[in-house]
Every structure is written in C-alpha cells, then in structure tokens.
Amino acid sequence: MIKLHKWKLLLIAVATNFTILLTLALGEIKVWGEIDWFDIVGEGGVSLLAALWLVFTLNSRPAGNVTNLLCLGLGFIFVGTFQDLLDEVIALPEGSFLRGGLESTLMPIGLLVLTFGLYHWHKEQLCFVEQRRRREQDIREYRWQDQLTDLGDARFLNQQLDQLLRQCRAARQPLALILLDLDQFNATNRAFGHKEGDRLLRELSELLILNLRRCDLLCRYAGDRFAIVLPNTPELLANELAGQLTRAVSSFAYKTNSGETIYHSASVGVAADNPDANKTVTEIATARLLAAKDRKKMESAA
C-alpha cells in the first residue's frame, strides 16, 4: 500500500530536510554539556510516534482525498515536532522564528487538517459499514475474520449467535440458523484445481449476501459450509429463505479462469432456536444438513 504514496512521503522528507538545513544555517550545534537529554527523549518520542502514525495510516489507505488530508495533517505534525527536536541540539539565536515559532504554527495547522481528514474518514467508513452489514452486523473483529472470504469465521459466528440468541429470547422473538453446504465441492477442487475452488467460495459468499435481508448475518462455518443467522425469523420463513438460497446457488453459473461454466447444488439444514431443547440450534441444523446430504446420496444412487 505504501508504494501508492511515495510522492507524499518524498514531499515530507524534502520538507524535513529543508528544516534541518534552515536550522543549521541559522543556529549553531550545541556542545555536549548544553544538551538536555530528558527533552531529547520526550520530543524525539513524540516525533517518532507521529512518523509511525503516518506510516500506519499510509500503509492501510488507498490513494484519494481523505488520504491526502490525513497525510498532510500528520506530515505537518511530524515536521513541527521534528523541528522542535532539532532545537534541542542546535542553538538558535534568541527571537528567531524557528525557535518555537515554527512548531507553534505547524502543530495547530496539522491538527486542524488531521481533524478535517478524520471527519471525512468517518463519513467514508459509514458507507462501508452499510455495505458490510450482512457480514459483520455491529461488531468488527479482524482476528475472527476468514482470510479467504472476508466473512466472520466459526468463532465469530458462535460469539454473535450467543448474543443474538440472548437478545431474541429476551424479546420473545424466534431465531433461526441455516447451514448451507455445497454438494460435490471436492470434485470441483479436483477437476479444476484448488485455486478455482477458493475463488468459487469467494464468489459464492457474495452471491449469498445478495440474497439475504439486511438483518441477517452470513459467516463461513468451515470449508465449503456457510452459516446464516436469521434473527426474528420463525422456522417457516427460514425454510423459505433457505429455499431461495439453494435456488440461487443452483442457478449460479460460475466461470472458471479458462471460461468454463460450473453449476453446483447446495444442501441446507435449517433449525429454529428452542430454549427447551437439549441440543443447540447449531447441532440441530448440522444433523438436518447431514440428513439432507444422505437423502441426496440415496436419490442419486437409486
């Protein structure tokens, strides 16, 4: 990511260099005894942290106006604090603008620009949150995110399921869970390679999201099995939604890299939460999914 911002970094480096030259031209280097090491550590630390923020921010952002604002703000802060640090090793004549004046100008401007940038970042983020709603609901936890599909993983599912179960039970609303599993996914992997299989799972997750409601949560359970949590949904409606998903999967014409079309079918297990049952909703859904798979095998054998 940082490669996108090499011009900005170069600009900051040039500005830093310029302040060094200017300070050297106007002042004289202090002798060892004159240096206050405590100040060096304090101001150096601030300067270093500002540089770190800059690197982290640039490394995680694509190019664009918001990034430019953030970079400009942090750049000002960095140059200001850096000049303050130079002040400690180079004695400047009394009354010079560089002596404190530059820092006092750059810091407030930097903070203002940064604030403006952060405001726009916030607005930008709101757009993404809406887009990602069916993937993460209200919580984002990058450690619980599946690397391949960007969906929450099984731990995220369990944690969210616990929370939603509690909420729904308290509000006396039904909650349903769908487990969806591709049929013959291993055969596809063998025939077209695992890279195609990986891409199929990614595209499939997009497809499933398109077919869900705003309140539903899609997670990757494991392998080719997906889990969909449906809050405030009775079993009948969950069955209907599961039917929509399987129909969407079977008409999904996946294109391999070489342009071939592969069709898949999916099996589902649907379960509604029953607080009195001694099995969890996931266990019931898993059992129903396996039964559905077995039925399909029997039918194809017959």
Partner: peptide, 12 residues
C-alpha cells in the same frame, strides 16, 4: 480445538 473443521471435513 476447532470442531467446525472436523464436522465439515470428517463428518459426525
């Protein structure tokens, strides 16, 4: 450690 992986890959 990860029962989900076992269920999907190894069954019940």
């Amino acid at each position: 450690d990860a029962p989900e992986q076992y269920q999907v890959n190894f069954g019940a």
